[in-house]
């Protein structure tokens, strides 16, 4: 009874703002609405007994990704309402894409045999740590190398732009390009 109530509340917290994200005319409002959806998903993780995942969801998505999304959105120019285009070309491709994604997800959810059971209430952190350092140490290290590459790439992109235009930078680049 209480579990059902919690589930419904969490579902509302996740889905209603998600609609707001999609349909809001104001892109900044959409960004802020995403906060509730992400918190709702974290709530689901917690509800299912995945406490570590829930807190990580908050830490990564609310504390990191959402802040960056908001930064980007706030720095972009918000077009005045009314000058929007409402043509079919703006409606059809997203609709087709959304339907395709929905179809795939629906298929996955119905086809996979889910291991349904009582959510465990025991803490998961220690177990996750042990698994990451033993059975899954290769994927773990692999992911860290991918992330490192992404970080270095981002740093290089920023550096090039700040140098670009200055004669020194161009000369330097030519020097480096020579074999």
């Amino acid at each position: 009874m209480i579990r059902d109530l919690v589930f419904v509340l969490l579902a509302l917290l996740t889905v209603v703002p998600a609609f707001w994200v999609v349909f809001s005319r104001n892109i900044v409002h959409a960004g802020f609405a995403l906060l509730f959806t992400l918190v709702g998903v974290a709530g689901f993780y917690g509800f299912l007994g995945a406490d570590f995942l829930a807190v990580t969801q908050l830490m990564v998505y609310v504390g990191g990704v959402l802040v960056l999304v908001l930064f980007t959105v706030m720095m972009t120019h918000v077009p005045a309402v009314g000058r929007r285009r409402h043509g079919l070309d703006r409606l059809v491709p997203p609709a087709v894409f959304a339907a395709a994604v929905f179809g795939v997800l629906y298929k996955v959810i119905t086809v996979v045999k889910w291991n349904v059971g009582e959510a465990s209430t025991s803490p998961t952190t220690a177990e996750i740590g042990t698994q990451l350092m033993t059975n899954y140490v290769f994927p773990f290290e692999y992911v860290s190398i991918v992330l490192l590459a992404a970080m270095v790439g981002a740093a290089i992109l920023i550096r090039e732009r700040s140098h670009a235009g200055s004669d020194d930078a161009i000369a330097e680049e030519k020097q480096e390009a020579r074999p």
């Binding site: 406490d51 570590f52 807190v55 990580t56 908050l58 830490m59 609310v62 504390g63 990191g64 802040v67 803490p123 952190t125």
Partner: peptide
């Protein structure tokens, strides 16, 4: 709960 410290840093991001 077990994740107290991690949780504190996570909710501070709000």
């Amino acid at each position: 709960f077990d994740l107290g410290l991690f949780y504190i840093f996570a909710v501070s991001s709000l």
